[in-house]
Design a binder for these strands. Structure first.
Lengths: 239, 239
DNA sequence: AGAGCCTTCTAACAAATGTTAATGCCCGTC
DNA sequence: GACGGGCATTAACATTTGTTAGAAGGCTCT
């Protein structure tokens, strides 16, 4: 059941059986969320952290004028609100973008891990650091990439992240986001989002239909995106 | 000497004398950097993490077309590359935006802290989590705020962060950034950056001259920015 | 005081992006 | 099979933002 989490953590450094057991013990109960449901509400003070077993979720903030901005996409194996373990108060919400199967880890047990399992603690810490690295990459994309490049970068990132947790199918993956939702990822209007997707399609690097993205020319897509996966810390080394 | 770091960490939770001592012991040597000098280079694999004692630094990435994007601004008391302790390889550079006085913490000693001082470890972890929270706020600002609001938000954030480490002077603070550098923070052209600053000045909420920003109407500035400092985790509580 | 350099600020125009509105498509419900 | 709702797509136009160029201000060095 926790296979995705193990894969996610183990991509950075070896994970021992004892550590896997500790993680498994930290889990209390599981739950399903329907599309559009809040997994964690903004302003909440969770006593659990949420692990995605299956589905796609997203962090978001809403502004007074109704504008919404997603600040991250979370795939299976991601601890979507591990940061709340120390941050305490959620400054943003987390919503299910597809039906989500999640599992909750008790904060008290996470705390016990920090007291007794330093290496595992570092791996969990690292997990949140990669999160931060992804955020930085998004900032760069929003600030200085062309919109086409930004979208290409997002696709590269998602493909790699999904591949790690074995959610890709050859060069294809499922992307259950409407163009309106994608627009709230890239910070665009829906109309312009549509233009940008069209541009990427026209170049012929991706096939995109039925919420399934197929990368036709990975090399070229990576080039358009200037995608360098270093920030995902994919190398396995002592941490 | 480490007063800023103590203030920075202690804003989230109490810091014991023993913990302060552990931090002090982790520090090896200090150094000065001139404006424009790289404190940490992109691609480096540092063996130390850098604490800013004085000055302003920034994380940045450079794209192939020469475009530069700053992904964070770092003030005194910030551990600018604490993440490299676990991330290992720098995926971005850190540059001195003003003359910087820094101090280096050995990774081996940080590791020892994670082995022996769980509470302090959590505080350091938290420090990187706040970093992530700031990143998320920047993403929202870049994606869904007007540029005026984005700039206002940046000023609010900087003011609060500088206040914590006692680098404000009444409602004023020193901001040693040229408009070109600010443009690389907000992701704008220099010309438009100038327009946006002009707009904020015209409203009369700030006085901005000689690299000194004076907030004339904090309430209104906060309103324009929709600034809610929750994400900075300023409340002191057990972590 | 003058020369050079960086920075700020403006103008005029070009390009990117947003807005509003309309059309057609797909899909599930009745 | 008709109906309705959400979604993708396109068009026409408005607004924002970028580009290029230049003038003006301020600073340092001599």
């Amino acid at each position: 059941m926790l296979e995705s989490l193990y894969l996610n953590l183990a991509q950075h450094d070896a994970l021992s059986d004892a550590e896997k057991a500790l993680l498994a013990e930290a889990m209390t109960f599981e739950r399903h969320f329907a599309v559009g449901q809040d997994i964690v509400a903004s302003g909440a003070r969770p006593t659990h952290s949420t692990l995605i077993l299956d589905g796609l979720a997203a962090r978001y903030k809403v502004l007074e004028n109704g504008g919404r901005q997603f600040t991250s996409l979370q795939v299976p194996g991601d601890f979507v609100d591990l940061h709340a373990f120390l941050l305490k108060t959620m400054d943003h919400g987390i919503v299910a973008m597809s039906p989500c199967h999640v599992m909750f880890a008790d904060h008290s047990r996470l705390r016990a891990i920090t007291e007794e399992a330093p290496h595992l603690t570092r791996l969990l810490w690292l997990d949140t650091l990669v999160d931060g690295a992804i955020h930085r990459e998004w900032i760069v994309a929003m600030g200085r990439r062309s919109k086409t490049s930004h979208l290409a970068h997002l696709l590269c990132e998602l493909f790699v992240r999904l591949q790690v947790v074995q959610r890709t199918n050859g060069m294809s993956f499922h992307l259950p986001l409407s163009q309106a939702e994608l627009a709230d990822v890239l910070g665009l209007s829906v109309v312009h989002m549509n233009r940008v997707i069209g541009a990427l399609r026209k170049i012929g690097v991706v096939n995109w239909a039925n919420h399934t993205v197929t990368i036709l020319d990975w090399h070229r897509l990576q080039e358009i995106a200037e995608f360098d996966p270093t920030y995902l810390s994919l190398t396995r080394e002592p941490r």
